[in-house]
Design a protein around this nucleic acid. Sequence first.
DNA 1: CCCTTCCATAGGGGATGCCTATCGCGATCA
DNA 2: TGATCGCGATAGGCATCCCCTATGGAAGGG
Lengths: 292, 292
Amino acid sequence: MQFQQLVYFVAVAETRHFTRAAEREHVAQPSLSQQIKALERELGAELFSRARGNIALTDAGEALLPLARRILADADTARLEVQELLQLRRGRVRLGATPSVCTGMLPEVLRAFHTAHPGIELLIEEGGSLDLVRELARGVLDLALIVLPLPPSAPPLTTVELLTEDLVVVSSRELPPPGGGGELTIADLREEPMVMFRHGYDLRDLTVGACRAAGFEPVFTVEGGEMDAVLGFVRAGLGVAVVPEMVVAHAGPGLRATPLTGSPLRRTIALAHRTDVAPPRAARELKRILVG
Amino acid sequence: MQFQQLVYFVAVAETRHFTRAAEREHVAQPSLSQQIKALERELGAELFSRARGNIALTDAGEALLPLARRILADADTARLEVQELLQLRRGRVRLGATPSVCTGMLPEVLRAFHTAHPGIELLIEEGGSLDLVRELARGVLDLALIVLPLPPSAPPLTTVELLTEDLVVVSSRELPPPGGGGELTIADLREEPMVMFRHGYDLRDLTVGACRAAGFEPVFTVEGGEMDAVLGFVRAGLGVAVVPEMVVAHAGPGLRATPLTGSPLRRTIALAHRTDVAPPRAARELKRILVG
DNA sequence: CCCTTCCATAGGGGATGCCTATCGCGATCA
DNA sequence: TGATCGCGATAGGCATCCCCTATGGAAGGG
């Protein structure tokens, strides 16, 4: 059974005429006759009763017609759906991002993407960089905005560096600035009780690692919150925190950002996806917007 | 798009493995690879992400898979349905028959046919021979048991003579036999008031024609009924009627059948179908049982 | 570092689809 | 009744396609 044969069969069934069906399908009449005959041979039954001037479906033809129509319609649908995916009229991107990116650069980028491709569904997964890498590997995410460097346990990922953020110490404007108002180094944080993110945030590992490298263990007054909660605790004067500079700009009043001098803390945000599977078309387009 | 390509596509999607899919489809691996590639070329999109040891569907592949499955299932269904028609496991016969045949030979034949092919729907159209011929021509009936000879207006029909019935004069046992108990000829009916069928019954034309040939116009006490009604009127003594011998045997008590001597009236029952269109398989089978 | 696994590519041979030309058969009409 | 027309079937040639075997090439595993 061939698609072409079904097309010809439906054409003859609808025109009740071999010659006119051949014209409609832009094919020579003998070709069409042959294909109908081949189909009849394969099915083992005549499909048309060829009475002179009155081509009619046999019962086998009647049985085949609705199925043939549905098969051809499904084939058209398949072609159409794939085209819509290609043309980004439909589709889905599952994007992971760290909280700071979500509140920082992402809204504007997603707005631009959605305007360009309103048919594409955008699913954002907010989480710590390590979680996101794991979810990329599991195939739950198409793309993720993660923090470099990748952990050693990371699967083969293709990464593109997007930006490097300086980390600053954020504190409440209600309290005196940390370090007494002068320059601030990591070592100065030894004296400052801190508000710390939950496990999974790369900022936690980064900060704790920097403190230990400076020779002390940081002291937490509160720990375990997400980004917004941590900033709220800082604003309430529970302690200081180390966050990306970009976050403070969006965090509203009541907070003070103090840069770190000496060996500045920074982190690099990169766009990552699995190396072994090409991301879907829509994800590639989002990557193009993010990187370009 | 080819059925074969969809088969291969589904096989790869299910095995996640080109080589094993090729084995499953009993085809060389390069052939399968080529067909998948051809399908991808036609659709303009990759269907699989060919990561080493981890073949996965792309989004285009995901979109295609359910449609491909349905298309292949429909194709199987089409083949199956046609086979069931061929094997008489399903189907329909629209059979026309005159009332006398319906009450006479038909029940036994239909019982045998239904036992042999319980999946075949039997639609019986009871009517006068002329009506049946018209309905054959219109394609409303597949087969009909009609009375020969065919009228001149008949379309091209293929007929097979089944049996020749003698016509008898039926009368009420409550009354003296027509013709005074001796032999009975058509001419004797000149004195007998008759009960006559409605127009359309070939028996009407046959009887009236015979009377006229004998030189008189028959007199009707009642006219217009179907077979059962006519027999009822005769039983009630309203007159005599000319009916097939076979009918009297099934008509119950109270009736007397008197054969016609001299030039006996008879009629020939034949099975007819259109010459220009082959009857459906199930109808041909019923014909085989009727004729054989 | 070699070997295995697995998909892609190359090239040849048989099958298949489409073409033009022609036949056969009813129907129509003079 | 014979010529013509309409329409589907058949015949034969040509291009294409599909499948085959052989081989390439890249990614893991021992």
